[in-house]
Structures are given as structure tokens and as C-alpha cells.
Amino acid sequence: MLISNHLQEYKAAVLSLPKGTALTKEDLLVDKLLMKRSGKLEMYYAPHNEYMNPSAKVIIIGLTPGFTQMRIAMQEAVIGLEAGLSDEEVCKRAKEAARFAGAMRHTLIHMLDTLGLHQYLNLTSCDELFQVQQTNLHTISLLRFPVFVEKKNYSGVHPKLLSDPFLREYALLSLEQELDILSQALIIPLGKTVEATLQLLVSEGKLDHRRCLWGFPHPSGANGHRFKQFASYQENMTKILQDHLWKD
């Protein structure tokens, strides 16, 4: 299902992108795809987080799509639009192609398998969540659309998300909307910024803390401490999985 449909507004811009070549920042970080600007922060359109899977048993929450995800999603969207697919199908295919693409996805799958998540979902490996069993998975970002600081991926640090009015409001509105629809799924927040935002919702009584796999590190290679962090919280995360109320 579509939870927003900005694709209608940006469809002409997407279709005008160069064909047959890997898209660059010069192609994508342009005014015709710019959604919002706040100081040094810029938010650009990408289609993949407009689609959600309402039947998911697991939600993985990242910070914001990076440029690699944006590029893959946009290239997939061009293919889908030129093939005459519906907006929903275009956004769905873009999401499936782009989410946690590259080495980060392999690290994420390895960590989830180490915790034994696949066993609770009756899978051979969590790799299947990104392949034949995608109905079990929904992925979202605190910031639904890609955010950059001086054309570099926003990292959650400068400025801090919860300290910046623009980022805070946008993140909380998007997050509450999707978590309200998926009210029973296990939530896996990637990294400290995402976790801090979920903790805020817990403190406000808007989220049950037992639904969250606290302590999961961001699997990106930019997080040099990801394996040490994972080891530190592994026992606690395993206990959370054991206690989670798995529903058919």
C-alpha cells in the first residue's frame, strides 16, 4: 500500500533522468527533485519509502536513505514508469531493490541470523526476508526521504535529529504513522539516533518498549564499532526475541 504519493508530483522529473548509466549526485541532487531545505539540510525525493507492507512481522528502521539507496531506487523507478506500472508497484519495486543495498545488507543479515531471528519466522536465513519472504518485512527510515548536509549523507550528528525542529517534526510524524499501522510487529532500530527517537515515543506512552530490539547497531561500514556493539548487546537482544509475542 502507498502511504504517500509524491511520485505523482515528481514523475516527470524522474522520467527525465539519464538512461543507461549509473546516476550521479549531479543527476539527482538537483532543484527539480528538492523537497525541502532548512539551513544546510536538504531533503530530496526518492520513491521507495512511499510503499509499506501492512502484513509485516518485522520492521527495520534506518535513519535516512543514503545516496546509494536513492540512486538504486530512482533507477528502478525509471524502469517501472517506462514499463507503465502503477505508482504503487513502482514504489514497491524501488523499495525491494534499494533497501539496505550493498555490503550493509550482508552485515545486517549476518547479525539477524546470529540472533536467531530466522528461526522465529520459520526461515532458513534472514536473507529470505529480502528475497522470497518479503511479506514478513517492512523497512522504513526515520526521515522517509533522503537528507543530505552539503551534498553528503546525513549521519544524525550535525545537527542532532531530535535537536533540530525540522528533522524532529518530520521524523516523528512519519514514524508514528507507520508504527500505528504495524501495531504488532517487532521493531529493529538501527543505531543510536533511531533508538533515541523510539525511546522518546516510549516515554510519551506511544510505543510499547517490549516491541523493540534495543541495542542493535547500525550495520553500515561507516560504523567502525558495529561488531563490538553487537557483541555487547547480543545477550540482551536474544532475550528480547525470546520474549516477543510472535503472531501468526
Rank of each mutant, 00 (worst) to 15 (best):
M1L: 12
I3V: 15
S4V: 07
N5W: 03
H6G: 06
H6T: 07
L17K: 03
L17H: 05
G20T: 11
T21F: 01
L23G: 03
E26M: 02
D31P: 03
K36G: 00
K36H: 15
G39K: 02
E42P: 07
Y44I: 12
N49M: 09
P54R: 08
A56P: 12
V58K: 06
V58Q: 11
I60P: 11
G62I: 00
L63E: 08
P65T: 01
G66V: 01
T68G: 02
M70A: 02
A73T: 04
A73H: 00
A73M: 02
E76P: 00
I79F: 04
L85T: 09
L85P: 02
D87W: 11
E88Y: 06
V90W: 04
C91M: 02
A98F: 01
A98R: 01
F100W: 14
A103Y: 08
M104S: 10
R105I: 00
H106G: 01
T107V: 15
L108N: 09
I109P: 09
H110Q: 13
M111A: 06
L112V: 05
T114V: 10
L117C: 03
L117M: 04
H118W: 04
L121M: 07
S125Y: 08
S125V: 08
C126I: 06
D127S: 11
F130D: 03
Q131D: 12
L137D: 07
L137A: 06
H138R: 08
I140T: 15
K152V: 15
Y154S: 10
G156C: 09
V157K: 13
H158V: 13
H158W: 03
K160V: 03
K160A: 10
K160T: 03
K160D: 09
P165L: 07
R168S: 15
L172K: 10
L173A: 11
S174N: 15
Q177Y: 13
Q177L: 12
E178K: 08
E178I: 11
E178V: 12
E178A: 11
D180Y: 12
L182Y: 14
L182D: 15
A185P: 14
A185F: 05
L186A: 07
K192E: 12
K192Y: 04
V194H: 02
V194C: 04
A196M: 04
T197A: 13
L198R: 14
S203L: 04
E204S: 03
G205M: 06
L207T: 11
D208E: 10
H209V: 09
R211T: 12
C212E: 05
F216N: 05
G221N: 09
Q229V: 00
F230Q: 01
F230G: 01
A231C: 00
A231E: 15
S232D: 13
M237A: 02
L241R: 01
Q242R: 08
H244E: 09
H244T: 14
L245C: 02
